[in-house]
Design a binder for these strands. Structure first.
Length: 370
DNA sequence: CACGCGTGGCC
DNA sequence: TGGCCAAGCGT
């Protein structure tokens, strides 16, 4: 396994050159973002550490999520909960509601749990040791390293998708992902600067986000073009190598729009674990590989009643499968005795609904019978 | 450790 | 248009 890369790590001098040119590039091209503190620039100037709460909040939101998507959510959270104590005091439902549409809802539950951990275990102040950060809910190796570097100014190497790509190209790592992960992390660690660790970490990510991107390598603008081995070969887009992905399957299901005579609609909280965990939604059948016929759809209904199938289907694409959902209106024949809540349409905006549920609501508006 | 977990934008 | 991608984590 020790064929680490096609080319060996850089010498001490080369590393110093790489660090200097990247930091200079960062100062020159600095992008302002709501959670950032500007680089002081200059000689040995370390950027003053940012508020750990803001760094943490932004990093959790940015997990697998684009900057443009995160910005409005980040502003809303920070304005509503300015510090970790405020967030810890909030009811979980409020946090989930504020998170709706952002996806990966386990992050929101872990965020809330983490806020309470900070208050109960650390007196409301973020710990400044990587191991203590790692013990917090929702904080993994990447986020712990990011907080260490950006908020506490400590030498640490957060390795996100950008850093993986930049590093794989710089060294021409021949091993394919995800197997190459450890190897790439080790190589990335050899680059990390002692000075301005927070700026260096963000510079690596910015480089991957704006210059050394997945689909384009704008090597002309890259501060590392003189040392990059993939650029020297003229094949930067060949890295990082990846193993082929499986094709995304389609799964089928039925969603039940339970409507009472007064017009209220039935919602229930989804189980904490699993798809859209902890969010509100209308009842759904189990998801199957095959289309679900009318008989099975009636059999899966949560209560007895008159069923009307709406025309069309709701299509929603998740990370690991494509969902094709039939929607039927169900007028319960008997009183409700299943756990959940009846919600007036004018109050839909009060409950935490994932995007799939909003699509279903829209589908009923368009195709539903009044 | 491979997999489950959202959503929106891009070509 | 379908596949790929985006500042990963928990199990």
């Amino acid at each position: 396994m020790e064929k680490a890369s096609e080319t060996p790590p850089f010498s001490r001098d080369a590393r110093a050159r790489l660090q200097g040119s990247l930091l200079a590039w960062y100062d020159r091209t600095y992008r302002e973002l709501p959670w950032r503190t500007p680089p002081r620039g200059g000689e040995n100037g370390d950027t003053p550490g940012a508020d750990p709460y803001r760094v943490w909040l932004s990093e959790i939101m940015l997990q697998q999520t684009t900057v443009a998507t995160v910005i409005p959510y980040y502003r809303a959270f920070l304005s509503r909960w300015p510090d970790v104590a405020a967030l810890a005091r909030a009811p979980l439902d409020d946090v989930l509601h504020a998170w709706q549409g952002l996806g990966y809802y386990a992050r929101a539950r872990n965020l809330h749990r983490c806020a309470r951990q900070i208050v109960s275990q650390w007196g409301g102040r973020f710990p400044s040791r990587e191991a203590d950060l790692r013990a917090l809910s929702g904080v993994g190796p990447y986020t712990a390293a990011a907080i260490m570097a950006i908020a506490f100014g400590q030498k640490a190497t957060p390795v996100d998708g950008n850093v993986v790509r930049v590093t794989a190209r710089l060294f021409c790592v021949s091993t394919a992902l995800p197997h190459a992960r450890a190897e790439i992390e080790a190589l990335a660690g050899t680059l990390t600067a002692d000075r301005r660790p927070g700026d260096f970490a963000q510079a690596m990510m910015d480089l991957g986000a704006t210059v050394c991107t997945a689909k384009k390598a704008l090597c002309v603008h890259c501060p590392w073009k003189g040392d990059c081995r993939a650029h020297a070969r003229g094949t930067p887009l060949d890295y990082p190598r990846k193993t082929a992905k499986k094709k995304k399957p389609t799964r089928h299901g039925v969603a039940y729009w339970l409507r009472r005579p007064d017009g209220d609609v039935f919602f229930q909280r989804r189980e904490e674990k699993g798809l859209l965990g902890g969010m509100m939604g209308i009842p759904m059948s189990p998801l199957e590989e095959q289309k679900i016929g009318p008989n099975a759809a009636a059999r899966f209904a949560p209560v007895a009643g008159d069923i009307t199938f709406l025309s069309g289907v709701v299509i929603h694409v998740f990370t690991h499968f494509r969902l094709e959902l039939m929607v039927c209106v169900l007028v319960p024949r008997v009183g409700d005795d299943i756990p959940g809540m009846w919600v007036r349409e004018s109050h839909f905006s009060d409950i935490a609904l994932p995007t799939l549920m909003k699509k279903i609501i829209s589908h009923v508006r368009v195709n539903g019978l009044q």
